[in-house]
Design a binder for these strands. Structure first.
Lengths: 334, 334
DNA sequence: GTGAAAGCGCTAACAC
DNA sequence: GTGTTAGCGCTTTCAC
């Protein structure tokens, strides 16, 4: 592959001048610039960014460490990150950590080794110290979808507690009384906050909370299925379900289907995360819609801000959600 | 950040020895190795892979240029790629080309500039020459999900034509006679092959093909919706739909829903791509299931093979599909 | 405005 | 088995 020296030789200038032309830095005589352009084209020259990065001591690459790339919530968010990256001349290295701290740690190592210009991460645990090596070395970090407990890190999240409270209150208004809550593991802030919102709504309604109705599952379809099955087998099964994410909602609906429990008649359902198929299922599903794409964009913009010498102090941006009421949570009049 | 020289100094050895220990190459005295390990830990040293790549003239990074990261088909396939990458010590740079040739070209440039060790791509067009610069420079390329017309490139695909033929034949057997076909743009081999399979099934059944029933849409939800609406407005609307991908199927179902056209009674539906929600919609959806994850794994393994001096000549691997018959394509007895 | 030359951090000949 | 050293391709002072 052609190097900058080949171009310089062909254009009869010095490599320094070629570099200036390519990077549009400093003043170059127009005639010389023209010759360089021509040589670049003739040789089909592409600057070696590996060499450039070594010299510049930084790469225009962001690392995105995402919990589960099979979850549409996260892919949509990733698109937001990617679009901002492209606008600002960055590439994104997408890593799927699979809610696994060991994998997460490995990817942080990769980001460090590649000298990534920044890292966007949805941490598997808020007690997490995996980002510490990044912070120590001054690599800008933004957490997305979730926050970290102790570290002073930029974050973009949604109003999880308020959204959960609203969803639960909606079920209460619809006349449901024994509302179960299926959340993800308590190591993520999304889960703890959604559970807290659920509890707050019960308390506000003067209802006791029943630990048997609070289920922790794995944030995947199978977990939602199992949790629902367990709930249905209780002595006093719930009359409504608030499910903490989209994948688990699918599992829950599948279980209800198989058990021939009718929605919204016998059991009301509200699920976190909006889906394209929400209007296609019967009954149409009531959801908590998150601005996923915007979540990604906001995180990427924050990373942009956090880069450079005069970065503002870390802050948390909270985006609103929307309760989309459909048929699964509205009990028909008897 | 600590360099290899810092480590060497602390361990009282030469940088070459440190390099040997880190890369586990050549023989090193155990005692020295121990001292190096210790120094590495003490300094919290991480090898600078940018420098390493410059020196080695290759990076352990693959670039995956994917058509639409919002399409679950492609995210699932990406997971397959990623898992093999991790097993083989590669990182994956995921790029979303959005079915846009210009974007695709840009990402090929990035892959070239970053000196990627290999590229996996689902090309936006089979007439595509975007990969030519890669081939010229000897960068291993594998196309996934789709093939290229002229270039001798490794490919992993599914048996599109056969699958489409089987799906259409199934609709015919179920008693449907005016079957419409909604495919993606004719620039992708998936679309042309699926259309060809559909036609073959009609021909085999001795039915004429009606150009009015062959719709080209954009592979997204909106396209499926619009195509279906147009079909319903014909003088002689179809009595069945074969839809060429999952996103368009959602659009088609939404349109049928809104138009109060009942499935499978008034119209039968088979959609390409399997979804978690296929059993949740009413009626449950008949689909053509693809081994998406395996598609990704196979492509990545092929890339692994294609790397190195004694790479086998390019070939195309075709994976099987499965017709999953549910309720949307089975007309109830009258 | 332009060129010469040093050096980013690493690896791989090569010499010992 | 270990160390010395050159050089990967680029950018960036620093002379001119």
């Amino acid at each position: 592959m052609a190097t900058i020296y080949d171009v310089a030789q062909l254009a009869a200038v010095s490599p320094a001048t070629v570099s200036r032309v390519i990077n549009e830095r400093g003043n170059v005589d127009p005639e010389m610039a023209r010759r360089v352009q021509e040589a670049v084209r003739a040789l089909n020259y592409r600057p070696n960014v590996v060499a450039r990065n070594l010299r510049r001591q930084t790469a225009a690459v962001w690392t995105a460490i995402i919990s589960d790339i099979n979850n549409p919530h996260f892919t949509s968010l990733t698109r937001g990150v990617e679009d901002v990256a492209q606008e600002s001349g960055h590439s994104v290295m997408l890593c799927n950590a699979d809610e696994d701290l060991a994998k997460e740690r490995r990817y942080v190592d990769v980001a460090l080794a590649e000298r990534a210009a920044g890292v966007i991460i949805s941490p598997a645990s808020y007690r997490n110290s995996t980002v510490a090596p990044l912070l120590e070395r001054g690599v800008p970090v933004v957490t997305i979808d979730r926050t970290l407990q102790a570290s002073p890190v930029n974050a973009v999240v949604v109003e999880n507690a308020a959204a959960a409270e609203r969803a639960t209150a909606h079920l209460l208004e619809a006349g449901y009384r024994r509302i179960a809550c299926i959340t993800g593991p308590m190591r993520t802030t999304t889960s703890t906050q959604r559970l807290a919102g659920y509890r707050r709504a019960l308390r506000a309604a003067g209802l006791p909370r029943d630990p048997e109705l609070e289920c922790v599952a794995d944030m995947k379809e199978g977990g939602g299925y199992e949790a629902t099955r367990a709930l249905l087998q209780h002595d006093r099964p719930p009359d409504a379900l608030f499910v903490g994410n989209g994948l688990m909602t699918i599992g829950a609906l599948r279980c209800l289907n198989e058990a021939r429990v009718t929605v919204p008649d016998q059991i009301g359902v509200v699920g976190f995360d909006e889906h394209r198929w929400a209007t296609l299922v019967r009954p149409a599903l009531t959801t908590v819609a998150q601005p996923t794409y915007e979540l990604g964009r906001a995180a990427a913009k924050m990373l942009l801000e956090a880069t450079g010498p005069d970065a503002p102090p870390p802050r948390t941006v909270t985006l609103p959600t929307r309760l989309v009421i459909r048929d699964s949570s509205v009990r028909p009049a008897r």
